[in-house]
């Protein structure tokens, strides 16, 4: 075998290795999900979704966890979208290029990389204890908001940047103020891509457990929260709790809970992909 044939074989071999690896992770994930479905689907019924937690695995359900998760999502959207989009607008449209905006930029890149459990520690010390919010939904959602605000800021800035400058000039030339230009032209034009980014951030937030355990989400809550000041538990925390029990019946519950959690996560991801495709088709500058 001469040198050049050998080279070509190595090349071919590597190509197959690449294809193999591309699908390796995905196939493993598919196998995981298949096993979970096998174990969890039979357990997944209406009772499981509407039952309170219990010491007896066959009676236990995810009702409080599911309502807690929806509450958490709702409050987090309110805080993170208002603050994150505002900060994004400020950085992109108002902040003067200089040392301060550079500092803000570096700071945001850093915040994106801070482990989520550290946000939990911040929430614990500041919201729970200093502000006295305790282990409430409010403290939890504020913590989760701080976690995803950097992501929303980055999304907002990129979306605004993608709006052509000529739109801004057109509005200014008609006598619009800076804010009128942002509010009436730039934000609506950027909204599709901002919404896509926000939903992606929420898809990540809905699966977070660690920081919320630190800020006092409980593992056992026998009632559903009614106000933002109530105690709560969440779907990922309920799953964590069942996973750490020795009885195999609880593992079945965990599997069923995971099916629900994965459904919600993939649903949010799917919505954002759908919106992104729809938006890309609609807008061409």
């Amino acid at each position: 075998m001469n040198n050049s044939t050998k080279n070509r074989l190595t090349d071919k071999a590597f190509q197959y290795f690449g294809i193999f690896n591309t699908f390796l992770g995905l196939v493993m994930l598919a196998v995981f999900i298949f096993v979970i479905m096998q174990v969890g689907l039979p357990r997944l019924n209406w009772d499981f979704i509407t039952s309170l937690p219990s010491r007896f695995p066959e009676k236990a359900g995810i009702y409080t966890a599911l309502i807690g998760t929806f509450w958490m999502l709702f409050l987090t959207i309110i805080f993170s979208v208002t603050l994150g989009v505002s900060a994004g607008i400020y950085l992109e449209e108002y902040a003067k290029k200089g040392w301060f905006s550079k500092l803000l930029e570096i700071n945001i890149s850093n915040l994106v990389g801070v482990p989520s459990v550290i946000y939990g520690i911040l929430g614990l010390a500041f919201f729970n204890r200093y502000l006295g919010l305790g282990g409430s939904l409010l403290a939890g959602s504020l913590t989760l908001s701080l976690l995803i605000i950097p992501v929303i800021i980055v999304t907002t800035r990129e979306s605004l940047k993608a709006v052509p400058k000529t739109i801004k000039e057109g509005a200014y030339a008609l006598g619009a103020t800076r804010w009128q230009t942002i509010w009436k032209q730039q934000l609506p034009a950027a909204s599709g891509s901002i919404v896509t980014g926000v939903i992606l951030a929420l898809a990540r937030a809905i699966g977070e457990a660690a920081p919320l355990i630190v800020v006092g989400a409980l593992v056992y809550v026998p009632f559903i929260p009614h106000t933002p000041m109530d105690d709560y538990t969440l779907l990922p925390i309920q799953i964590f709790n069942w996973t750490s029990r020795p009885q195999p019946e609880f593992q079945v519950n965990a599997s069923a809970g995971i099916i629900v959690l994965l459904f919600l996560t993939f649903l949010l991801n799917g919505i954002s992909i759908y919106l992104r495709n729809k938006w890309q088709k609609k807008v061409k500058w």
Partner: peptide
């Protein structure tokens, strides 16, 4: 008023484009 090099209509309807200046 100003008219630019490349036409730069707002990404809204024809009506809204003309009405924008009055609405603000």
């Amino acid at each position: 008023g100003m008219v630019f090099q490349k036409p730069n209509p707002f990404p809204t309807s024809i009506y809204e484009n003309v009405a924008f200046g009055m609405k603000i």
